[in-house]
Each structure stands twice: as structure tokens, then as C-alpha cells.
């Protein structure tokens, strides 16, 4: 089931950036703050919550299968407490948490976050990548964040027999479709690079997902040939 409701905890620059970026993805986005004064904010509809209170209001709003929570409190200790509180209340809720450093990131993982974004490490990685491989970093950044005409897409294979049992590594993808296939996610969710040894011995089957990059028109043409654009099956989603 696709997530339809997002819960963002914390009201700060990180939280507002998250909201600005996900607002189109969800039918409802709730923003919670630990500071009662934030409820008066004009741009965002902010609800007050207290970590020590009973979470009746929040609990009433959250539907585990169709909700996702973003824990973005500024204080790492509070954020960890929030994450563990959410996990204690909702076993299957998808939780994304922000951590300042590696130590907090480890604690958040133990606390039950599905995905932890270590802010300092992520920023430092981007910077060091820019220094080490400036061109590759820029190209990948532009592809991933759609800052150029190049796009990246997940295509689910629906017409595997069209490849006549050819192994993925032997198919000349770029010549026929103008796109580049980076990797394959098999039905069992195992990932393979397109030229790994596995892809030389295992033919494509319907339901495999191809991670492809190319121009939008080429990706669309490719999509028509072999399947359809894949959206995440949240039931199987795990990081």
C-alpha cells in the first residue's frame, strides 16, 4: 500500500525542508512541534505534542500501513526517545530519523528507525565526493535530484519473454533503447549490478525491477517495451 499520510516531528530547518520536498507525495502531512508557541505559525499547520504525554491524538491519526513518520527533533536524545516511543506504539510504522552523528545514528537504528540519515556524515560524504570525483558526483547528483534532463527510474519487467531468455549482462541495452541499465532488483529483493556474474547466468523474469537512467523520452519508450514504471510496494519495503 502506498503511504498517504506523513508525520513530521520537530519544527526546524530540517523539518521544513522535508515538508517542502514531500508535500506532493502525500495526501496529508502533519507537523508536530514540542513548542506550543509554534502552533501560531502562519505558513505551517503545526500541532503541539509532548513526549511525556499519552499520544492519543497522534495515535488516532496514524494508520500503520499507510503512514510514514519523520523524526527531526533538533536534540538527538529527544529524537531517539521519540523514535523508540513511535516504535513502541506502532510495530510496523515506517520511521525515518535524522541523526547528527554516528553515535546517535546507531542508537536510532537500535530504537527501531527504518532509515537513519546521519546529517554530518551525509554532508561530509557529499563534500568529499565532490573533491574526489567532481564530475561523477555532479552527474549523479543531477540524475538523482533531476537537476538535468537525465532521469533515473525503476521499471518493473512485465514482458520478460521479449528478451528471448537472454541474460541481462548480454543485452545491449543502450543500443536498442538509448538508456543505461544500472542494476536489477530480483523478485526476492536481491540487488545485482547489471554486469555482475549473476546477471550472466540468470535470465530476466516478469516482476524483476530494472534501475535505469536516461532521457525521459527514452525511459518512456523503454517502459512501453518491457513493462511499467515501478512504484514502491510499501508492504515489502525495508531499508
Amino acid at each position: 500500500m502506498k503511504h498517504v499520510t506523513a508525520f513530521v516531528f520537530g519544527f526546524n530547518n530540517y523539518a521544513t525542508e522535508i515538508i517542502d520536498n514531500i508535500i506532493g507525495e502525500y495526501s496529508q502531512v502533519y507537523l508536530f512541534s514540542l513548542d506550543k508557541k509554534d502552533e501560531e505559525h502562519k505558513k505551517y499547520n503545526i500541532k503541539f505534542f509532548d513526549l511525556d504525554d499519552e499520544w492519543t491524538e497522534v495515535e488516532n491519526l496514524i494508520t500503520t500501513e499507510s503512514s510514514i513518520a519523520f523524526c527531526a527533533l533538533e536534540d538527538d536524545a529527544m529524537n531517539i526517545f521519540l523514535t523508540i516511543s513511535l516504535r513502541a506504539s506502532f510495530d510496523d510504522l515506517a520511521i525515518v530519523s535524522l541523526a547528527k552523528n554516528k553515535e546517535s545514528a546507531n542508537k536510532l537504528e537500535i530504537a527501531g528507525a527504518n532509515k537513519v540519515i546521519p546529517i554530518v556524515k551525509t554532508t561530509a560524504d557529499i563534500i568529499s565526493n565532490m573533491m574526489n570525483r567532481p564530475i561523477a558526483t555532479k552527474v549523479l547528483h543531477n540524475i538523482l535530484y533531476e537537476k538535468s534532463d537525465l532521469k533515473i527510474a525503476q521499471i518493473i519487467v512485465q514482458n520478460a519473454k521479449g528478451f528471448n531468455g537472454e541474460f541481462p549482462a548480454d543485452i545491449d541495452w543502450s543500443r536498442y533503447h538509448g538508456i543505461i541499465v544500472l542494476s536489477i532488483i530480483h523478485k526476492d529483493m536481491s540487488k545485482e549490478f547489471i554486469y555482475s556474474s549473476q546477471t550472466r547466468h540468470k535470465a530476466l523474469v516478469d516482476g524483476d525491477i530494472l534501475v535505469v537512467t536516461g532521457y525521459e523520452a527514452d525511459i518512456a519508450a523503454f517502459e512501453k517495451t518491457i513493462g511499467r514504471r515501478h512504484y514502491v510496494n510499501w508492504g515489502n519495503w525495508s531499508w
Binding site: 503511504h3 506523513a6 530540517y14 525542508e17 522535508i18 517542502d20 520536498n21 514531500i22 507525495e25 510514514i68 519523520f70 525515518v96 535524522l98 532509515k115 540519515i117 546529517i119 551525509t122 538523482l144 535530484y145 533515473i152 527510474a153 525503476q154 532488483i185 525491477i209 534501475v211 515501478h230 514502491v232 519495503w237 531499508w239
Partner: peptide, 14 residues
Amino acid sequence: VGMIVKELVGRPVA
């Protein structure tokens, strides 16, 4: 962080 979250929720595999 905003961009990462967007990609994560939109195209986690990619």
C-alpha cells in the same frame, strides 16, 4: 536532507 528524503520516499531503489 530534504532532497534525500524526497528520493527515499519516491524512488528508494533508485
